[in-house]
Design a protein around this nucleic acid. Structure first.
Lengths: 130, 130
DNA sequence: TATCAGTTTAGAATGATTCTAAAGTGTTGA
DNA sequence: TCAACACTTTAGAATCATTCTAAACTGATA
């Protein structure tokens, strides 16, 4: 609890009740993939009712501070990943199936980066099923 | 024109006025990346007013028939790619910058595919900028 | 050329996300 | 401890890409 407060403060985030609850859930040591909706549902199960607007705000605040990764898997919702290490994913849109690939994946044969651009990240999505 | 009709027929698509116009634009020999909106705009410039609903329908019909690839680049719109070969992309969300990587990219070090699943496709997105 | 299944379309509906602006709350300095 | 204020939260409205609906339209077939 106090460590969560410190954790938030050290990321320039004021430790409000809501952020403490959300951080407590997200950063409990196990990797998680959440959407705004799924996070809201999980917190509700734990009797923590937080408005969706705040959930969106908080996910973005955490993301902006590098505490979450944003995943671009399908066009109809945004996923956030508590595993911020460089890693990739298996994904099945149909089954909403999503698991980390933590192994060291190597992408070989990339052409030159376009002039005046810099690579921000390389995302490998292994789509399962059709 | 008649080749377009044949082309559509050979893909089990009835060659309607609208589909002929859209196919004529999309499959003119140059690779294109479009969204429903951008396609609508391009056609309008050419004095072809086609309802957005039809544009969505047609893009999906073409996609379902393997004439287009669907790209999952950002969460706020769907891109379709007329290059249906196995390839990847450089992408800058900020600049809406999108170019093909046709070189033979190799992804090494993938772990075992999850039990009972099959790999549909491997998508590599090289995100530029931050 | 009549018929009918497949298409197109305007407009409504949907659903995730963002915005607004008003009320609430950490934080700071005295 | 407390006043004061910037930062947050929130309900509800707004936005925007996309899908749906149901009525009008049009290729294809005989």
């Amino acid at each position: 609890m106090n460590d969560i407060k410190q954790f938030l403060r050290s990321n320039a985030l004021r430790p409000t009740k809501q952020r403490i609850v959300i951080a407590g859930y997200l950063f409990d040591g196990t990797d998680k993939h959440v959407t705004a909706e799924s996070l809201s549902t999980e917190l509700a199960k734990r009797k923590h009712i937080i408005s969706l607007a705040t959930i969106y705000n908080t996910l973005h605040d955490f993301y902006e501070n590098g505490l979450l990764k944003k995943l671009t898997l399908s066009a109809d919702r945004v996923y956030f990943d508590t595993n911020t290490d460089d890693h990739h994913h298996f994904y099945s849109e149909k089954e909403q199936f999503l698991i980390d690939i933590n192994k060291n994946i190597k992408v070989n044969g990339l052409p030159k980066t376009p002039r005046n651009k810099k690579i921000n990240k390389i995302e490998v999505i292994v789509h399962l099923d059709k």
